[in-house]
Structures are given as structure tokens and as C-alpha cells.
């Protein structure tokens, strides 16, 4: 690894001020597990890292807010999310997803903010949170802003964040009886980056699916909502025919890429099948 400087600001605002909107070799580092991989491979060679470990501890807290939503501070470790009692009680789908995300050691160190800001479409947290309707809070030098999580992603490893902006928290609304599931499909070994991630959430009204959210990851260049699949599911009974229609719609809509995890035609077939399985799992909690 090439030598660089590391600064350790004591506050979020100081951290933001140490970043440079024009300088790509200066970057923030939270858990560093993903960033270090890029540095080791030479993809990223920093001149300076702005370490966030010493910023205000509140940014690492998970708090229940009044309307039953959870506010997860960006500096919370993934392991904190996995172990959090409120997450377990209110967002079991998130807790389940954490168990398949990388491994215990990485989750001990990696932070929520880093996992969201990295922009790697293979990561598990963005699709799950996007399906749950999460919004991210972002701090910049002048003002803060907030947006739906899926709007954070502009492309493959690309986000809409400015180089001197930091994610401060992610807000996840209460499920309010909605059903949710995340299917991580690995095609080579059990512990692998997914070939495909499918996250769904929806309400059930009188036996029909209502207000569905369908999010696809890993097979696509970025975490993407599947609007036609959502339309196919909306107001439909969760029977085989409707689920097939939704799967077909998603397979048609998704811009699937070929890579070492499988060809695009194959991953489209996986999407067809796993969208169905995701909805079923959301309904009955089965891990098909």
C-alpha cells in the first residue's frame, strides 16, 4: 500500500471541512473494510484519509423515533444493527439480512454509512433498506439534505454524494404490518457476493398485495426499483400466476449484466424465480 496521511477529526463538521470537493484522492474512511480492498488492489490510492472514528458518538447510535421509525447513525457498525433489540423486534428482515452479509469480523468493523456510500451494487444493505423505504441524511459543508435511499445511486460504484458530503444516518420507517423479505442469491459458494439480490416489501389488504416495493441489486449496475414488477404485483393476489407475471416483468425491466457470477440471460431467469420466492418468503417467513 502506498503511504498517505490520515487525519482524525473530532466532529462531523470538522470531517466535512477536511474533505475536498475537487480532490478524489482525499476520502473519508469509516470501517475501511471496503476501502482497504480498493487500496490494496491499487484501484484507489489516497493522499489523505479522513478517519471518522473520533466524531461525535451520537452518529453511531441506533434510536427509535416517535413514529416507530429507526434512525441508524452512519457510524453504527453492521454488527450493532444485527444485535440491536429494536431492529430485531421491528425490522426482522434487516436482522436476517445482516447474518448473510459478509462475515462476523467484517460486520464488527464495517459501518452503515460506508456500506451505503460505497456504491457497490453487490452489497446487501442498500436493497433491503431501499425496499423498506429508508431515507438517507447527508451532511455537507453548507447544508444537510435527505433523500430516498435508492436515489443515492447513480451507477456502478457511483453515488450522487459530493466528495465533501457524508452520510450521517439512515431513517427506516416502521413496517406497520408490511411484509418484507430479502433474497440473496449466491451462485458459486454459500458465502459469496450475490449474483442477484431481490428485496420486496408490501402491505396485504383483503388478500391482495398493496403498495409493493421491489428492489433488485447485484445483477444490475446499481440498486434499482422495479416499477413494472411493482405495478404487476399491486392489487394482485399473491398466487402463482401473479407472481410469475411480476417475475417476468422484472426480468424484462432489469438491465442485467453478465459477470463471473453468471450470464445476463441466466441472472434474468434467477430474477424471475427469486422475485416469486421473495414475495412468498415475505408472506410466510419461509426460507425456501
Amino acid at each position: 500500500m502506498i503511504p498517505f496521511d490520515m487525519v482524525e477529526p473530532a466532529s462531523l463538521q470538522e470531517a466535512v471541512s477536511l474533505l475536498d470537493p475537487q480532490e478524489p484522492t482525499i476520502r473519508p474512511v469509516a470501517g475501511g473494510t471496503a476501502l482497504m480492498l480498493m487500496m490494496k488492489s491499487g484501484v484507489f490510492q489516497p493522499t489523505r484519509l479522513v478517519c471518522l472514528h473520533r466524531i461525535e458518538p451520537e452518529h453511531a447510535r441506533i434510536t427509535l423515533v416517535a413514529d416507530g421509525a429507526l434512525r441508524i447513525g452512519a457510524m453504527a457498525t453492521l454488527r450493532q444493527v444485527e444485535k440491536d433489540a429494536d431492529v430485531a423486534a421491528r425490522l426482522p428482515v434487516l436482522k436476517r439480512a445482516m447474518r448473510t452479509l459478509s462475515n462476523v469480523r467484517v460486520r464488527n468493523v464495517a459501518r452503515v454509512g460506508g456500506a451505503l456510500a460505497h456504491g457497490d451494487p453487490h452489497m446487501d444493505l442498500p436493497p433491503v433498506l431501499a425496499a423498506l423505504g429508508a431515507r438517507v441524511a447527508i451532511a455537507g459543508p453548507k447544508q444537510s439534505r435527505e433523500m430516498p435511499l435508492e436515489d443515492l445511486y447513480a451507477g456502478y460504484y457511483e453515488t450522487v454524494l459530493e466528495k465533501n458530503e457524508l452520510i450521517t444516518a439512515v431513517m427506516v420507517p416502521a413496517l406497520d404490518g408490511r411484509k418484507a423479505a430479502y433474497m440473496k442469491v449466491t451462485s458459486r459458494t454459500a458465502d459469496d457476493w450475490p449474483s442477484l439480490g431481490v428485496a420486496v416489501s408490501f402491505a396485504m389488504k383483503n388478500g391482495t398485495i398493496s403498495d409493493p416495493v421491489v428492489v433488485v441489486s447485484a445483477a444490475t449496475a446499481k440498486v434499482t426499483r422495479m416499477k413494472t414488477a411493482e405495478a404487476a404485483l399491486n392489487n394482485a393476489a399473491p398466487d402463482d400466476a401473479s407472481l410469475r407475471r411480476a417475475g417476468d416483468a422484472a426480468a424484462e425491466e432489469a438491465e442485467v449484466l453478465s459477470d463471473a457470477h453468471g450470464s445476463a440471460p441466466y441472472k434474468r431467469e434467477l430474477l424471475r424465480v427469486y422475485l416469486r420466492r421473495a414475495v412468498r418468503q415475505a408472506l410466510d417467513g419461509s426460507a425456501e
Binding site: M6, G32, T33, M36, L37, C51, H53, R79, V104, R105, V106, N108, V109
Partner: peptide, 13 residues
Amino acid sequence: DVAVSGCLYFAVW
């Protein structure tokens, strides 16, 4: 007391 990957953990930390 928490396991980490030493290869992905900056020494200064």
C-alpha cells in the same frame, strides 16, 4: 475483545 481482520484494519486504529 471483538474479532477483526488484521489485514483490513489500519494499525493506527
